[in-house]
Design a protein around this nucleic acid. Structure first.
Lengths: 109, 109
DNA sequence: ATTATTGTTCGTATTTTTGCGAACAATTTT
DNA sequence: AAAATTGTTCGCAAAAATACGAACAATAAT
């Protein structure tokens, strides 16, 4: 180990990025983000995947903190976790704002 | 398949997110983004990983389009791919800007 | 010519991810 | 009580990601 471990911020942004690193999960997040309030219903009907697979993706988004779900049988209420959404937004914002290249083609001389 | 396939944008943002979904790759990107110009040198020395592993991560970032490398023996020149960086920045910007929840706690009533 | 430098590729092993159907749990409807 | 609805969990399989050391290639330095 020639260098220090990763920072907390690096770990957290990587965690969020990983959770978003699948088109099905992007689609789920986009869908939920466009709901005015929480969503009750069958999310897998909005996606080209099986019920079990959708449930798994939802679990991963939940584990990453991007969404939250509450069981209100026979349905489940899914929502964006606004607090973590904002944190992720800030982290990615900083991440993409940090490039100090002076010109667009600074890397092509 | 109960719904249409994913859109191009969904696929692309997921691709970028996946590439960023590892702390080592976040660290590499942050490091490169903070260079004024391109970097010649041993990136694995900046990270707590082996040479071979660093090389693999660099390859993945390259495949995802986030960086570019040019061989100038005995070293390699690594740079942010500014064009794709900007695309990713825009995609994530839109993604995180789309939540229409009206209040921070709209999902907690 | 030999050695040192720099980074990739190969071979390998382990773990994680992805996806599905079937079975299950909890409630609502009939 | 039986059937329908909704979503999770289980068991499985296939694919991809993660990480490493060792071997290799290509040039530069001695």
């Amino acid at each position: 180990m020639a260098a220090p471990k990763y920072t907390d911020k690096q770990t957290r942004i990587a965690r969020y990025a990983k959770a978003l690193g699948n088109p099905a999960r992007i689609a789920i997040m986009e869908f939920l983000a466009q709901q005015e309030t929480c969503f009750f219903g069958e999310i897998h009907e909005k996606l080209p995947i099986a019920k079990a697979t959708a449930s798994q993706h939802l679990k991963e988004l939940k584990d990453a903190g991007l969404i939250q779900g509450e069981i209100i049988p026979p349905k489940v209420k899914y929502c964006i976790n606004k607090e973590h959404w904002k944190e992720a937004k800030a982290l990615f914002g900083k991440f993409f704002g940090q490039c100090i290249c002076k010109e667009d083609n600074c890397c092509k001389e």
